[in-house]
Computed example of a mutant assay.
Amino acid sequence: MADEPPLPRTRVVLGEAAARRGPADPARTDLTEGTPIGDALVKGLIRAQLALALRLSLVVAAGLGALPLLFAAAPAVGGLKVFGMNLPWLLLGVLAFPFLVLVGAAYVHWAERNEQDFTAVIRRPER
């Protein structure tokens, strides 16, 4: 018995788990294999995220960019004092940061909603 060569190793595969698993989801297969349908789904998500980012950047540009224009067009508004501070300092130096945080939080919320919608499309059963 000592002279016999050792048996070759065999690989054990969980065949039962693979057999229990249902058929592959066509949408996930499209995504992982890079088919034209999967590419269209991913491009749709990217387009939605880009459109959201552009809309919110326009909100920031309009909100913060309009203030210097307002102060230049109506110098009397720039001379107003609120809580002992000049209005331009209050708006641009203090209130701009909470505004930017709110816009950022809104972006995160809506971007996650876009991703959840994308995931719902992928997980939707075929009809």
Rank of each mutant, 00 (worst) to 15 (best):
Leu91Arg: 00
Asp117Tyr: 02
Pro5Met: 04
Leu91Trp: 02
Arg123Tyr: 08
Met1Cys: 10
Ala24Thr: 14
Ala72Thr: 10
Trp89Lys: 12
Asp39Thr: 12
Glu16Ser: 08
Glu112Pro: 05
Pro6Gln: 09
Ala73Asn: 04
Glu4Arg: 11
Val42Phe: 05
Thr119Arg: 13
Arg47Thr: 14
Ala24Leu: 14
Val82Pro: 00
Arg11Ile: 15
Tyr107His: 12
Val60Tyr: 05
Leu67Lys: 04
Leu58Lys: 10
Thr35His: 03
Val42Cys: 01
Arg28Gln: 10
Pro98Tyr: 06
Ile37Trp: 11
Val103Ile: 15
Arg124Ser: 11
Leu56Pro: 01
Ala24Lys: 10
Leu102Cys: 07
Val59Gln: 00
Ala17Glu: 09
Gly78Gln: 02
Leu7Tyr: 13
Lys43Leu: 09
Val60Asp: 11
Arg127Asn: 06
Arg21Pro: 00
Arg124Gly: 08
Ile37Lys: 15
Arg28Ile: 08
Gly15Phe: 10
Pro5Ala: 06
Leu54Phe: 12
Val60Trp: 05
Val121Gln: 12
Thr119Ser: 11
Val94Gly: 08
Met1Asn: 09
Ala106Gly: 12
Pro75Leu: 02
Ala51Trp: 06
Pro8Thr: 03
Leu56Ala: 02
Gly65Glu: 02
Ala66Arg: 03
Leu90Gly: 01
Ala66Gly: 15
Val82Arg: 02
Leu41Gly: 04
Glu115Gly: 14
Gly44Glu: 05
Thr32Pro: 02
Glu115Tyr: 09
Arg127Ser: 11
His109Pro: 01
Pro5Phe: 03
Ala76Asp: 15
Thr35Gly: 02
Leu54Gly: 05
His109Phe: 13
Ala72His: 07
Ala66Ser: 15
Ala74Arg: 14
Trp110Lys: 07
Ala96Glu: 06
Arg127Trp: 08
Ala19Asp: 10
Ala17Gln: 14
Arg9Thr: 13
Ala76Gly: 14
Phe97Val: 15
Asp30Lys: 00
Ala53Asn: 07
Glu115Leu: 14
Ala40Trp: 04
Asp39Trp: 10
Arg20Tyr: 13
Leu14Thr: 06
Asp25Asn: 15
Leu102Asp: 10
